[in-house]
Design a protein around this nucleic acid. Structure first.
Lengths: 127, 127
DNA sequence: CTCTAAATCAGTAATGATTACTATTTTATT
DNA sequence: AATAAAATAGTAATCATTACTGATTTAGAG
């Protein structure tokens, strides 16, 4: 059902070799250095597929772009509204405010999105 | 610099009278019940302005839509990937896993976005 | 090694949420 | 009432993302 593809491998390699949370477009341009004629549609399709399979995750910081992350382990993303940096903070370190202080980050507004299944949907069936 | 407008007031009223985290389009249709000829552009402009002034916040759960929230206090949003419900959980209740358990929520993937200023940007200047 | 079907691709067109634009109306102040 | 800034309705433009198509690649069987 899922065949190997050089394109998908290259995309995964790019995502795993950076901590900058690139957009689809950024990934596209980076992968073009490896596969010069890869198409944007292929990048989008594979990003969706890698996300579906849990190999990568995505973050939406409200700038209108989906940002991709090769680190699929649950962690905190701190988003600077000025330079747009997205900073990783592993979850076992500390609670929210501590984590913020340790990074010299001044939190203004925080949103936690937990994706999963709510009580009702989880009881109704398996998928 | 900021004048009163009936349209903005109606938008705020709509947002404060629901906990469903509507999209701009949903807000538009709801406000049309109060002001039948309000335009979509006006809704978008005022949502941006209300967000800027901190009267409302927005959540992006990765479904391609920006969701608006009349409750500007920091809180957790749990997003069901099946029914798309966005459930509010106040922050002082408990830590993440506890909050999830209490709501019968099965977390699969969690992303915390903290908007603010990073160390570098905060040291460089005031705004 | 062929053969075949399913999966994937490159390239391009279409979609649709959001933003920009413009002429008109409303607000707040004198 | 007069005036300037702010806001509006309506429409057009933008652009990230998705859908589509005919060609290519993959994987497994013979």
């Amino acid at each position: 059902m899922k065949n190997y593809s050089r394109q998908r491998e290259a995309i995964l390699t790019v995502l795993r070799s950076t901590d900058t949370h690139p957009t689809a477009s950024k990934v596209y341009h980076k992968v073009r250095e490896i596969i010069p004629n890869i198409s944007l549609g292929t990048v989008y399709r594979n990003l969706a597929q890698l996300k579906e399979s849990g190999e990568i995750i995505s973050v939406n910081v409200g700038d209108g772009f989906e940002h991709f992350d090769g680190n699929a382990k649950p962690h905190i993303h701190m988003h600077c509204k000025k330079c747009s940096a997205i900073i990783d903070v592993m979850l076992n370190e500390d609670v929210i405010s501590d984590a913020a202080q340790k990074n010299g980050f001044v939190p203004e507004n925080m949103v936690l999105v937990i994706n999963g299944l709510c009580k009702t949907c989880n009881q109704n069936d398996v998928n």
